[in-house]
Write a protein that binds this DNA or RNA. Structure first.
Lengths: 247, 247
DNA sequence: CGATATCTTGAAGTTTTTCAACATCTGTGG
DNA sequence: CCACAGATGTTGAAAAACTTCAAGATATCG
């Protein structure tokens, strides 16, 4: 039932889970035998909408996605950015109605896995269930950290913090190194994520550039002064829980 | 090993889980046989601190608690308020280092359950693991909703939204009815939760009182106009996922 | 190459914060 | 029961952070 590319896609899920937990050979095999369908999606396309009741989960193989909710008068709040290896709608496995929307930011390749198969897998292998659960907990920890930013930090600190966070997340899956990465989001997206207007994001970015902290051009971010960026954003990576779970 | 009051405390956990999932007789029994120690804590006391590595979870039996993080210069962000039935440090089961602090707001009675026993329980009963996992997912959904408030709503809408949320949460465990409940938090706490200064909270509350939406005196909140409160806060209870999971 | 999205700038307005003072409530010991 | 101390609530005035609106510049995409 699995084509070559599908086997590849589930390897990505194994790698992701092994970055946060330890899997036995049997557990690894069980994940690799999940049925998964690969799809290529355009930029700006919704994967699951607020109010939907999805019957499958989505593993990101390539590209960026985000979760968001739209209020009236065009106000929008982005809750999270997602990169390859993430399963951003994992929650639909246990919360049947979507309370927000999941959509792509760039063109993206995803693997779709039926809920029934995920449920069977997690029922049969408590270790896999625990790994996914742990992933949900880290997800929540990131929400809390964003809350601190939006609630208690200046625009400057918020943006700097996000740049630190995305660098470590991308680095963990091999998509960034040398304090440099592709950041395929607009200043509007940045504002919607951090509770700022695009105008203020723009001015703050210029300020950061002027102070020599970053370079940002053509969707490429270069962190010129990592320690200083961490300092001004009060960034402490503990909340990302990137250390592997003790075996 | 269990005294009468300890048995009572675990009944509270069973009731909580049954409010979000369906348990079999065997699962119910397994939960009731968990070892738990009851403790009475003073108001303003920390249960688990940022950086700690707890070896037990805490079930709230009576009183209020909150999770928060302190930044420099006295800035503080409260992430959540917790009421009887909650296990606010459930995450320590899978994320070993606390990335925030859990503390009481009022005097509180808690039951302490060792991680080892919780882990054995969830490994043996996938249905219980799923119920706890679901609880974590709702926790995260509430964080997202607070992000919308802090990021995109006025002080007025944020406070109104919190009042709606706490009413439904308290009602779900039988601690509120008739649009009235005990709200044992200061205006400073409210500000720290919603990303506002206490001064602005004070003025906004007066505004809400003046418009006849609420009465708030002696830690007692009366919602005088529920529909209007929901409207101004753009409150939609979907995110609380209070409907019981389909069996 | 033209259309559309994104970025940038200026100026004015709004929300919210900060600071500082004073009032009120709450609990405790005398 | 009162006095007191500390915490909490209230008010005013000024300042800061950020938004909004509007327009023009630049980049991107078909």
């Amino acid at each position: 039932m699995s084509s070559a590319s599908e086997i590849h896609s589930l390897t990505m899920l194994v790698r992701k889970l092994e970055s946060i937990a330890t899997l036995s050979d049997e557990e690894r095999q069980a994940i690799l035998s999940l049925p998964a369908k690969t799809r290529v999606l355009q930029a700006g396309q919704d994967i699951a909408r607020d109010g939907d009741k999805p019957s499958q989960c989505c593993l990101i193989l390539d590209g960026w996605a985000c979760r968001y909710k739209v209020l009236d008068k065009g106000r929008r709040q982005i809750f999270s950015f997602h990169i390859p290896g993430d399963v951003p709608d994992l929650q639909s496995l246990h919360l049947h109605t979507m309370d927000h929307t999941l959509g792509t930011i760039t063109q993206a390749t995803v693997a779709l896995i039926p809920h029934d198969d995920m449920r069977e897998l997690t029922t049969r292998y408590p270790g896999i269930a625990a790994a996914f659960w742990r992933d949900t907990l880290v997800d929540a920890a990131i929400f809390r950290e964003w809350m601190i930013g939006i609630g208690r930090k200046t625009a400057y600190g918020r943006i700097a913090h996000l740049f630190c966070e995305m660098y470590l997340k991308l680095q963990a899956v091999g998509l960034a190194r040398g304090y440099r990465y592709t950041l395929p989001i607009t200043q509007i997206d940045l504002g919607d994520a951090l509770g700022l207007s695009n105008v203020h994001v723009n001015r703050t970015l210029q300020d950061m550039r002027g102070k020599g902290l970053i370079t940002l051009r053509n969707n490429t971010l270069v962190i010129e002064a990592w320690n200083e960026l961490m300092r001004v954003s009060e960034f402490d990576p503990t909340y990302l829980h990137l250390e592997k779970r003790a075996a």
